[in-house]
Computed example of a mutant assay.
Amino acid sequence: MKDLMLLKTTRGLCIIGLMMSLSTVATASAESSTGNTLNTDTGFVPEFPVEAAMVNIFTQPRIERISTVVAGDSKPMHFFTKTTRGKDTLFEGLHLHNATMQQYISSELAAPFEFTTQHYFTLDHFKIYGFTADDGAYVISTDTNTLPKMASPDASSYWDLDETYDSSDKKQLLYKIKKYWTLTRIDNKTAWLCINHFEEPLLSSNEKTFYYCYSIDGRGNLLGYQFGSTHLKDDEMKLTDYNSNDVIYYKIQHIE
């Protein structure tokens, strides 16, 4: 637990250890904007709805739970994330949609930890504008590329740049995070849609790279989730599945 770090990332996601993230979306938008790309004769999906899946990732009301063990500790840690839609609000002078992500972390080895973020976005040509956190962190998403409606597996692209400030007065810029998305086929009907983060700390020379991925189907539905880092060091926190020691992966429970 002493190695537990909290990195406030771009979409208002929080990353725990080397990562932990989440998000939420407009269910109606995700379903109506995708269409059905499934070839009903073969069960093969040639392309996947990237934009609609991103809408779901960042704005879909849901609950996500996972239990993990941390390297060097004998007791499991429990992560709980709940995403809900909020009322439209002002952010950076713009009227935007809003979603809230509540994260709760518990362990027998440390006191419970809670963290809440508010995310701000538009759904017509989905765009994240930033997020705010209950510890005062203020993040603005800039230099944004438009997400494709559809993409074939093995496609990838730069998405946007998140600038994290210590407060809403934006006097102190703490770090920047560049985000890229990638799409990788799992099987005939599903693919991993990953968001890769490249952190550029202003107060440190060490860049940290982490990612989170959702398995999606031909309609952009979220089926499962995993996260990790591209360069974990031996003395850094490692998250493994509590039951199987495999990469963290779990089902998502949608809520009303």
Rank of each mutant, 00 (worst) to 15 (best):
F131Y: 07
M101Q: 08
L173Q: 05
T59F: 01
N145V: 10
L94S: 10
E51M: 12
S167C: 12
V69N: 07
S106M: 11
L96W: 12
S141L: 12
T182P: 04
L94A: 11
G72H: 06
Q60V: 02
T68A: 14
M77H: 12
V55Y: 00
V69L: 08
K176D: 06
P76D: 05
F126K: 07
V69H: 07
F126H: 13
T142H: 05
Y158R: 10
I57G: 00
D169M: 02
I63K: 10
K176C: 09
D135R: 13
S167F: 06
Q172T: 09
I63M: 06
T122D: 15
P112C: 08
Q103S: 13
W159D: 06
S74A: 06
K75L: 14
D88A: 15
N145P: 02
K127E: 15
T117S: 14
D154Q: 15
F91H: 04
K170S: 06
G130A: 08
Y129T: 02
T89D: 15
E64A: 04
F58W: 10
T122K: 14
H119W: 02
S156I: 03
L174K: 08
A155Y: 13
A151N: 08
P61Q: 09
K178T: 05
Y138E: 02
V139S: 10
G136F: 13
Y120S: 03
I140M: 07
I105W: 12
K178P: 00
I177G: 01
L174A: 01
Q103E: 08
F115Y: 15
T184R: 11
P112L: 03
D135E: 15
R65W: 02
P76Q: 04
F113G: 06
V70K: 10
R85K: 14
M77W: 12
H78L: 09
F91S: 04
M77C: 11
T89R: 15
A53G: 00
D166M: 07
Y158K: 09
I105Y: 13
Q60N: 09
Y120K: 03
A111M: 15
T84A: 03
Y158H: 09
K149R: 13
E92F: 04
K127I: 10
T59C: 13
K170L: 03
V69F: 05
I128K: 01
K127A: 15
A133H: 04
N145A: 15
V69M: 05
G93Q: 03
D169E: 12
L174M: 13
A99I: 03
Q118V: 07
A110L: 10
I63H: 08
V69I: 11
T132G: 06
R85S: 09
G130W: 01
A71F: 01
A52E: 00
V69Y: 13
T132W: 09
D88F: 07
A53M: 00
F121M: 10
I63D: 04
T116E: 07
F113L: 15
F79V: 13
K170I: 04
W159S: 02
T184W: 02
F80K: 08
V139P: 05
T84Q: 05
T142Y: 08
T84R: 04
A151T: 11
I66K: 11
R62D: 00
H95F: 07
K179I: 05
K149Q: 12
F113S: 10
D162N: 13
K87C: 08
R65M: 02
S141K: 02
H95T: 14
G93Y: 03
H95Q: 11
L147H: 12
P61V: 02
